[in-house]
Design a protein around this nucleic acid. Structure first.
Length: 873
DNA sequence: ATAGGGTTAG
């Protein structure tokens, strides 16, 4: 057990993990004065009670606790007119957690993917000569031959006039990705230029061109050369390099450079500040960091402009700060700063990322009145938001709207549309999108194929997967890391370990390098097959290879606990009879022999029948998971809400309190508050822990909606599972009050489709009691009453109807008149009069009021409680 | 100097 490990700092955050850069710098932020007075909320950790355990020593987490908005998440931002003195961002809420920065990185592919398909810069009035155009044409033909470009430069030397011509050449070469020729051209030009001023111009152009191409190391070299040569110490060169860092997501390098710029006596200008804030957004810095820069800007007398605010909004997008974004938007209005399409698109992005789809639609509908017309970026942002929120119908209708509005679909829009169809298994439509796309002159790219492969794979259509993988190569598209990890995961989930192994071999042969996500995805695939122990081996393997697992990796494994019985009933397809033969030939490939991934695949391919059940036999799984927790502590991986939900869900899968108590102990080590609430409610100490519970729910409500509801679901399920039904109902009603499930509870309809089975059952009781009181108050019920469960489309398991079955069993067991609707298998209905009659029956109240299976116990310690059978329906 | 896309947990 990890009980000797001090509780690591943890945070209620789900923002993406990022394990790359220097986040230690963020600690500076805590000392910043703004972060003192921005928060007037009491620190809830100080209210912690000791819940049967000695209270923990204060930790850094307690000292640097995130603070929250005094207003609820749905409250409107404070009217700015009441605060005429604001001059900085001090009216804005802080980042939701200073620790969140650890996790709030963005995908690195984002930077690369923009490189080649970037919108071409609108040609500004260029002052280059005709000779420069000519030189460019000849230079282009030199691609790949450095001596050739030298010859061209020499040949045109006399006709090229000054840095304008050379800068034109640099830019054009850069636009074509010819960075090597651009650099030769730059060096050539600097050599022949005697004016420092002009040399400086060349240098900053070169730096920004390299930055745009993602060649940040080269950009830095050019910068250093320029500084050493005496022409690089300019605001422009610094700004260009800061911007280059921004484009590659290196925000702390950017900040460091900015500091050194000030040290060397240069005064940052508007562009410098804007580039730096942009770097914060792209590098996933927390909002506090950007806010400091903004304040610094004001102190230095540099007035922020539209782009400053747009960049700040982008920081909110990365950090998931919807309220902050709204406030910034209001602040722009107040200050009379123009809001453009970037402003709106970024704001919509933040709204969508936070799950505020309705709000996003409202904002979008207001755009035309503000003279800002939605464009293809607006639409693809919204479409992605809808798709992410599970509203695929809405997403698809937006495409029609887009065509109706005369907005042409571009590569991204097409790929987004295709990915939606593919993920729905609507392949005919997906392939039609691909056709339409090609007919518009946009070739299918790796993204297109990855979406298809993933879609076919999810439906188990492995022949189609193979076919498209071949087609992709035939079209000379190189599979990338994502392609391979998708394929390996798809094959593994299908139990096709030999195929997975072959793809893995090919992936290694291509010289690609696995990363955290690659391993995490593979681990998750094996977990989904119930192979927790193999996953644990891979966890060690990746660590040995120097790839640091992140919270997602661990959450996958925790989630797998107790799920092995649920899988592995699908028939295995093809390919098993060849294994022995293949194994013999593979023994010769020593270089592969050392690879644990291959070993695991080989083993799995050889013993398909073994698999999950055997691997998890006899309590080994719990030991394995506890060891995983221990490693998590050792590597100081901070848990997040998903971890907490995963632990609670794992508890619900325990058949004994003893096992669950081992897991709850892990929860305690991670977060005393969450533990205190879960444990307290489980013990039936509702009155005592409710204050803590409420502040915990305040925290959770900061998360995006699906994360928040998952936590409520997990907590309720755990309580329900161990017979604390009234506690479960209390939690569910609190969740409803806070609109966690964004569904409606009306007199005529109860929508349960986003709830777990425990939560849904507790909710059914509450709703029926509510309906009952309507009846007893003498009011009439609506003609038709319905209870919606959906068909499990929100479940990760395709076609899983566990919720429906649980509700059906409940409705029958309480003798209710609700029956499955004929036209909708996810809906139970009854008429108002029949339900009213049933509710008036004498025995009904008794079955509706929930009873705990066990009343509040005398014993304060969890493990003294006698073992209970897991609750059956 | 600014906006949207494809991998990981729920």
């Amino acid at each position: 057990m990890a009980s000797s490990t001090p509780p690591p700092h943890c945070t209620l955050t789900t923002t993406k993990p990022y394990n790359s850069h220097h986040f230690h710098q963020q600690s500076l932020q805590n000392n910043h004065h703004h972060h003192q007075h921005r928060h007037n909320q009491p620190n809830w950790t100080s209210q912690k009670v000791s819940l049967n355990r000695p209270s923990q020593a204060p930790t850094a987490r307690n000292a640097a606790k995130p603070h929250h908005l005094p207003s609820g998440p749905t409250a409107a931002p404070a009217p700015l007119s009441r605060n005429p003195n604001f001059h900085s961002l001090s009216t804005l809420p802080p980042s939701k957690s200073e620790l969140a920065a650890d996790f709030s990185g963005r995908r690195s592919t984002r930077f690369v993917s923009k490189m080649h398909f970037g919108r071409p810069k609108t040609a500004a009035a260029s002052r280059h000569s005709l000779a420069a155009e000519e030189a460019l044409q000849q230079a282009i033909r030199c691609s790949g031959d450095d001596r050739c470009i030298d010859t061209v430069l020499v040949k045109f030397e006399s006709r090229l006039s000054g840095s304008d011509d050379y800068i034109f050449l640099l830019r054009e070469l850069g636009n074509r990705g010819e960075w090597s020729m651009a650099i030769r051209c730059f060096e050539f030009a600097v050599d022949r230029e005697r004016r420092r001023n002009e040399q400086g111009k060349l240098a900053s152009s070169m730096i920004s061109i390299l930055g745009r191409l993602g060649k940040v190391d080269l950009a830095k070299k050019v910068f250093e050369t320029a500084v050493n040569g005496g022409y690089g110490n300019t605001v422009y060169a610094y700004s260009a390099l800061i911007s280059a860092y921004a484009k590659s997501g290196f925000c702390y390098e950017a900040i460091r450079l900015f500091e050194s710029m000030k040290v060397s006596g240069l005064k940052p200008n508007l562009v410098t500040y804007n580039a730096l804030i942009d770097a914060c957004g792209k590098g996933g810095a927390d909002f506090g960091r950007a806010s400091e820069i903004f304040d610094d800007m004001l102190r230095s007398g540099v007035q922020p402009d539209r782009i400053t605010y747009n960049s700040l909004l982008a920081v909110c997008s990365g950090a998931g700060l919807w309220e902050t974004a709204r406030n910034l938007f209001s602040e722009m209005l107040y200050k009379g700063i123009d809001q453009d399409i970037y402003t709106y698109n970024t704001l919509l992005d933040v709204a969508c990322n936070g799950g505020h789809i309705d709000m996003a639609f409202e904002i979008m509908s207001n755009m035309p009145a503000k003279n800002v017309l939605p464009n293809e970026v607006t639409y693809s942002t919204m479409i992605r938001g809808c798709a992410k929120a599970g509203r695929l119908d809405r997403a698809l209708s937006l495409f029609n709207e887009m065509k109706y509005a005369g907005i042409k679909l571009d590569r991204i829009s097409y790929n987004t549309l295709l990915a939606i169809y593919a993920s729905l298994g609507r392949f005919e439509e997906a392939l039609n999108v691909a056709k339409e796309m090609e007919s518009m002159g946009i070739r299918k790219d790796v993204v297109t194929y990855n979406a298809l492969l993933d879609g076919f794979g999810k439906q188990g259509m492995y022949d189609k997967v193979n076919e498209h993988f071949r087609e992709m190569k035939r079209e000379k598209l190189s599979p990338n890391l994502l392609t391979y990890s998708t394929l390996i995961s798809v094959y593994s989930k299908g139990g096709l370990y030999k195929e997975a192994m072959e793809v893995y071999r090919e992936f290694k042969q291509e010289g690609l390098k696995a990363d955290v996500v690659f391993y995490s995805k593979l681990i998750d695939a094996l977990c989904k097959k119930g192979l927790v122990e193999s996953s644990a081996v891979l966890l060690d393997e990746m660590t040995k290879k120097g790839i640091r697992p992140n919270v997602v990796t661990y959450n996958s494994i925790i989630n797998a606990f107790g799920q092995s019985a649920a899988v592995d009933n699908e028939p295995q397809i093809e390919s098993s009879h060849l294994i022995v033969l293949e194994d013999a030939t593979e023994m010769k490939l020593e270089d592969h022999e050392e690879d644990r991934v291959i070993k695991i695949f080989k083993q799995l391919a050889a013993n398909k029948s073994r698999c999950a059940k055997e691997e998890s036999r006899g309590g080994e799984e719990i030991i394995c998971v506890l060891e995983v927790f221990q490693k998590m502590h050792k590597l100081d991986i901070k848990p997040n809400v998903v971890t907490f939900s995963a632990i609670l869900n794992a508890c619900s899968r325990c058949s004994s309190f003893e096992e669950a108590s081992l897991l709850l102990e892990e929860l305690r080590l991670f977060d005393n508050q969450v533990y205190g609430v879960a444990h307290g409610l489980l013990m039936g100490h509702r009155e005592n822990v409710w204050v803590q519970a409420l502040s915990l729910f305040d925290e959770v409500k900061q998360m995006d909606s699906s994360t928040a509801s998952a936590f409520y679901n997990a907590l309720t399920d755990m309580l329900w599972h161990f017979g604390q039904k009234r506690g479960a109902q209390l939690v569910v009603l609190e969740g409803k009050r806070r609109h966690v499930w964004e569904n409606t509870w009306s007199d005529s309809c109860l929508d349960l489709h986003l709830m777990s089975s425990g939560a849904a059952r507790a909710m059914v009781h509450a709703w029926l009691l509510n309906i009952r009181s309507i009846v007893f108050e003498g009011h009439e019920l609506p003609k038709l009453l319905s209870i919606l469960t959906g068909w499990g489309k929100h479940s990760k398991v395709v076609g899983d109807g566990a919720l429906k079955r649980a509700i059906e069993a409940l409705l029958i067991s309480i003798g209710s008149p609700f029956r499955i609707s004929k036209c909708n298998i996810g809906r139970f209905t009854s008429t108002g009069s029949v339900v009213a009659a049933w509710l008036r029956e004498s025995g009904t109240l008794k079955v509706l009021v929930l009873q705990d299976d066990r009343t509040q116990t005398e014993s304060p310690r969890f493990d003294h409680i006698p073992k209970l059978q897991p609750l059956l329906l």
